[in-house]
């Protein structure tokens, strides 16, 4: 492929247009409010970013395979609640409790995946039901109340939510998790055999199956991975604020899907981009943070967030049409 052609396809790629818009947004916020780029504010954004970003990585792979998961926000809430209950009320060792949380997430993902693939119900309906079951379980076992705050430093807390300073910036170890998992996801989707399968399944499932690709198994494992990542993000969040709440993560599923599609991954499957998702995660984080700083009234946040997402999607659609025409 000649260099010129490669460059133009890069510019037309959805993650590139998202990236440009991210830069513009950051510039606008930076000009509108000097505090936007202050160490404190950047530290704040970087603290929140991994929690949704980690889920978005799993969601990107799942969407690329043609499925999605609405239960991630509920899993984000349930996993730490179960772990903390075991530790606080059951006197279980934190390591064992985390193991139990992991098994729980695997089970939720496996049930999602098995129902979607083996019974053939759309993932929208299955995971919507799972959202209710999981959120309901979190509310019931806590009787609707947040758990007592739990603040015992230890290996696992440091591993998931330890913090460190670089100059006047304060970073959490969760950022390393996000970076590491992002690199792994990029590798999987672009360079590994599995990524080829994931894209092929989302692009044309029958073709993939006809070539001997185990489409159902791949999807089930992606549901499990997404659930586990949601639980991991929930634990990171709970450790960071030293508390678990049964309503934590409410609405995260839509925010995460927004991050993924704003980044350029197709909702219909086949085309996924992890780089785009990282850009999308940064963008939604920056928007939520920036519009507070520029003084948009609190209750009007979502109007802006929704409008910016819509604008992004329209842009992607137009670019797509343009590319198809040429």
């Amino acid at each position: 492929m000649p260099v010129g052609k490669r460059r133009s396809s890069l510019i037309r790629s959805p993650q590139f247009s998202s990236f440009i818009i991210l830069v513009v947004l950051l510039a606008v916020f930076a000009v509108a409010d000097a505090n936007f780029l202050s160490p404190l504010n950047i530290s704040n954004m970087m603290a929140f970013l991994p929690e949704l970003g980690i889920i978005a990585l799993g969601m990107t792979l799942l969407l690329t395979a043609g499925e999605f998961d609405l239960s991630v926000g509920a899993v984000f809430g349930l996993a730490p609640v179960v772990v903390m209950l075991l530790v606080q009320n059951g006197g279980v060792d934190i390591g064992v409790a985390l193991m139990a949380g992991l098994v729980l997430c695997i089970a939720i993902g496996a049930i999602n995946g098995l129902i979607v693939t083996k019974i053939g119900i759309s993932s929208f309906l299955v995971t919507l039901s799972m959202l209710l079951v999981v959120r309901g379980a979190a509310l019931y076992i806590t009787q609707g109340f947040p758990l007592k705050s739990w603040d015992q430093p230890g290996f696992f807390v440091t591993l998931l939510a330890g913090s460190f300073n670089i100059g006047s910036f304060r970073f959490y170890t969760s950022l390393w998790w996000f970076i590491g998992l992002s690199l792994f996801a990029i590798y999987i989707l672009r360079y590994a055999k599995l990524g080829n399968w994931i894209s092929a399944i989302g692009s044309n499932r029958n073709a993939a199956v006809a070539r001997g690709v185990p489409a159902d198994a791949v999807k089930i494992w992606l549901f499990i991975a997404t659930s586990v990542l949601a639980g991991l993000a929930g634990m990171i969040s709970a450790f960071r604020i030293s508390a678990a709440s049964p309503v934590a993560g409410t609405g995260y599923e839509l925010e995460v899907i927004a991050m993924v599609v704003v980044g350029g991954t197709a909702l219909t499957g086949g085309r996924g981009t992890i780089l785009g998702t990282i850009v999308g995660a940064l963008m939604l984080r920056a928007i939520r943070n920036g519009i507070v700083l520029v003084g948009v009234p609190g209750l009007a946040y979502n109007i802006f967030v929704g409008l910016i997402i819509l604008a992004m999607l329209i842009l992607h659609a137009l670019l797509q049409k343009n590319a198809a025409r040429s």
């Binding site: 590994a192 399968w197 092929a200 692009s203 029958n206 006809a210 070539r211 001997g212």
Partner: peptide
């Protein structure tokens, strides 16, 4: 149903029989 439109020709040609290095990595092999 024979090809995945979002994949390149090369990737389609070898779908399900991809040449990999480090084959012991299974589905994670590059």
């Amino acid at each position: 149903t024979s090809l995945a439109p979002d994949l390149s020709i090369a990737r389609n040609l070898f779908l399900g029989r991809e040449p990999v290095s480090f084959g012991w990595l299974g589905v994670f092999a590059p």
